[in-house]
């Protein structure tokens, strides 16, 4: 038996909106730790890892570890039917082939339940080791989204370079080139407007903008995004999900042949 009650149901709506275009089908894993998902896109170039810790739920009952295969587009369709202020409860029976999403309006005057068929998904679960990064950039998520959108109108790839001058996003295409430099800025009124660059050593990596733009669909989840770079590793683009967890996107770089 599984029963997870999330008062801030809009978080789950936003999570689904941010992953449904990247991944078609995925297993949601439920354990004492929390509600999690790990899945790769169909080209195996990007990976998404979501964790919503059990403490973040108002009520969290998970009698035994459960893996539920879901079509993310269908799940997003159902969650779109929840109001932004609704409380969302996810319910499933052990060994059952459906999951139920229950939506309660804040005043309890409307209660809806949507039952969705589960599916068997044969997915590979990857071990992601804790890593030291050469550079970690924390910046306003809306700024990062704007940069990715702007650059994708010029080119297909972005070179992200971190030096002591700041972080530079560059692209080139048929019509020309573009460079956007963001410098560290911690003298801001609101902490969410800060740009913080922690650099161990300079790093420069190339990525497909199509994926970066897809990751920025998570922008409504968090005012800040963290971009962790190392020449030996995929970039990690992380958005915090309120106080309860994170959604991390991993993207393998493009290398010169």
């Amino acid at each position: 038996m599984l029963e997870l009650r999330l008062v801030q149901g809009s978080l789950l709506k936003k999570v689904l909106e941010s992953v449904k275009d990247l991944v078609n089908d995925a297993n949601f894993d439920c354990s004492a730790t929390g509600f999690s998902l790990q899945a790769m896109d169909s080209s195996h170039v990007a990976l998404v890892a979501l964790l919503l810790r059990s403490e973040g739920f108002e009520h969290y009952r998970c009698d035994r570890n459960l893996s539920m295969g879901m079509n993310l587009n269908n799940m997003a369709k159902m969650l779109k039917c929840a109001g932004n202020d609704d409380i969302v409860t996810i319910k499933a029976d052990d060994g059952g082939d459906t999951v139920t999403f229950m939506f309660e309006s804040p005043t309890q005057d409307k209660i809806a339940d949507f039952e969705m068929k589960l599916m068997d998904i044969d997915s590979e679960h990857l071990g992601i080791p804790e890593a030291e990064f050469q550079a970690i950039v924390r910046m306003p998520s809306a700024e990062f989204a704007r940069i990715c959108k702007d650059l994708s109108s010029i080119g297909d790839t972005v070179v992200i370079s971190v030096t002591k001058e700041g972080v530079k996003f560059s692209t080139r295409g048929d019509i020309g080139t573009a460079n956007i430099v963001c410098r560290q800025n911690t003298t801001v009124d609101k902490p969410e407007d800060a740009t913080v660059i922690e650099m161990q050593e300079p790093v420069s990596l190339t990525f497909a903008l199509r994926y970066m733009n897809s990751f920025t669909k998570a922008t409504p989840l968090s005012n800040q995004v963290t971009i962790s770079l190392s020449s030996e590793l995929p970039v990690v683009v992380e958005y915090k999900v309120a106080e309860m967890g994170y959604i991390r996107f991993y993207l393998a770089p493009k290398l010169e042949e």
């Binding site: 990857l126 071990g127 995929p234 042949e257």
Partner: peptide
């Protein structure tokens, strides 16, 4: 020309 690496080249299956 750039070669797009795959995630599986970095992380192993559990």
């Amino acid at each position: 020309p750039c070669l797009q690496k795959k995630i599986l080249g970095y992380f192993n299956e559990d």
